[in-house]
C-alpha cells in the first residue's frame, strides 16, 4: 500500500546569519492511508511549519517530500496548485476565511478552482456545512459568526473537495469542550 506522506530529512530555516531560526531539523515522517496522526509540541516548536510543508504551502529548505508517491519538492507552481486543490484539505490556525464572502461562498471556493459545476458546488457546500452544524448560517459573512463557527466553516471548506489528506492546525483551539470531541468527527 502506498504511503500518503513520506518526509525525509526535512529542514526549514528562516532568515540567515544573526537572525537565523532553525524551525525544523531532520524531520522524518511516514503516514499511511486511513491513518490518523497528530503532531504535538510546545508553542513555537515547529508544528505549524511542518504542517505547511506537508500542505505544500511552504517549501522546505532541504530534504525530500513524497505526497501520494509524487516528489512534490520538484514540482512547478501550477502542479502544486492542482495538488493543493485536489489532494489536500487544510484548516488554518487562523481560519483565513475571505471576509467579503458568505459561509456558503467560502466553502464553494475550492470547487470553483476545481471546475465543479455551479449546481454541484452549491449542493456539496450545503452538505458540508450541514455536517459541521451550520445549515442555518449559510449566508452569514465570517464577521457575523462566532470563532468556533468560523472554524467549522474552515473545516467544511477543507473537506468539501474530498481530499486524500486533511491537515488541521490546532483544529479544536476555538471550539468549546462539547464541540471539541465532535471536531474530529467532522473529518470522517
Amino acid at each position: 500500500m502506498q504511503t500518503i506522506i513520506q518526509l525525509e530529512h526535512i529542514a526549514k530555516t528562516y532568515g540567515s546569519g544573526e537572525t537565523e531560526v532553525r524551525a525544523l531539523a531532520d524531520v522524518n515522517l511516514i503516514v499511511e492511508p486511513g491513518e490518523y496522526c497528530s503532531i504535538m509540541g510546545a508553542s513555537g516548536s515547529g508544528k505549524s511549519t511542518v504542517m505547511n510543508v506537508i500542505g505544500c504551502l511552504d517549501r522546505p529548505t532541504s530534504g525530500s517530500y513524497y505526497l501520494d508517491g509524487i516528489d512534490v519538492s520538484q514540482l512547478p507552481d501550477a502542479d502544486l496548485a492542482h495538488i493543493r486543490n485536489r489532494k489536500i484539505g487544510f484548516v488554518f490556525q487562523q481560519f483565513h476565511l475571505l471576509p467579503q464572502l458568505s459561509a456558503l461562498e467560502n466553502v464553494m471556493l475550492p470547487m470553483v478552482y476545481a471546475g465543479v459545476s455551479t449546481a454541484e458546488r452549491k449542493e456539496r457546500s450545503v452538505e458540508a456545512l450541514t455536517r459541521v452544524g451550520l445549515a442555518n448560517r449559510l449566508n452569514n459573512k465570517p464577521n457575523q459568526l462566532s470563532g468556533g463557527q468560523q472554524q467549522r466553516v474552515a473545516i467544511a471548506r477543507a473537506i468539501v473537495n474530498r481530499p486524500v489528506l486533511i491537515l488541521a492546525d490546532e483544529p479544536t483551539g476555538a471550539l468549546d469542550s462539547q464541540n471539541d470531541s465532535r471536531g474530529f468527527e467532522y473529518f470522517y
Binding site: A81, R84, N85, F92, H96, Y113
Partner: peptide, 11 residues
C-alpha cells in the same frame, strides 16, 4: 488563501 486552496498564478 486562494493559492492555498488551489488557485494557480494564472487564476
Amino acid at each position: 488563501l486562494r493559492k492555498a486552496i488551489g488557485a494557480t498564478q494564472q487564476d
